[in-house]
Design a protein around this nucleic acid. Structure first.
Lengths: 92, 92
DNA sequence: TTGATTGTTATCATATGGGATAACTTTTAG
DNA sequence: CTAAAAGTTATCCCATATGATAACAATCAA
């Protein structure tokens, strides 16, 4: 195992660290999903914004993370990219 | 085809009607997902509310629909039920 | 029936999501 | 290099999601 791996494991012993890490990982994945949709649709932020009836700055804000978008906003984002969105839950 | 089916098809010619219908269907499915999580966890609204650090009245409001909850709220709901939540998109 | 549990509704206060605008930085094409 | 396109950041404003409390209705067991 690499030294880095070792440090990581040690750090993960701390629940605070672990939780923070997981939260970040989730957010990355979340943003990645948005970006995948937009790039799959071949749209710029500006074009997407227009389709959603909003401004590119707001799209950027969304895609930079750190916010807590509503389900409605996410659906509109998806629709503007030509997709449907669904939630599903799975055992923790 | 039943008379009812026939009426339905006629009504669906109207895009307004169609859209409204789809929106309702989506919301039903959405609420159903929430309910499925809570019942799977065997929780009452009150118990769930306590786990989420809120009130049962707010849970009821959520589950009655007509609102536009944030992604964060949905995740907290799921977590309180012992689930993880994920979004995925699929071709319209 | 009656009481307890569960869910609903109404209402208020507050935090924040999201719209709008403008200036700025980064990236890309010529 | 330079101009245009794409993305970012800051700010203001408003609508509304959500917390809190309380009274009410519905369900269910004893």
């Amino acid at each position: 195992m690499s030294k880095l791996q070792h440090l990581k494991e040690r750090a993960f012993q701390n629940p605070e660290v672990r939780h923070e890490y997981d939260a970040l990982a989730e957010e990355f994945e979340f943003i990645d999903t948005l970006l995948k949709m937009r790039t799959a649709a071949g749209l710029t932020q500006d074009e997407l914004a227009r389709r959603m009836g909003t401004q590119k700055s707001n799209i950027s804000r969304l895609e930079k993370g750190g916010t807590n978008p509503s389900w409605g906003t996410l659906k509109r984002y998806a629709h503007a990219c030509g997709f449907e969105l669904s939630i599903d839950f799975h055992g923790a």
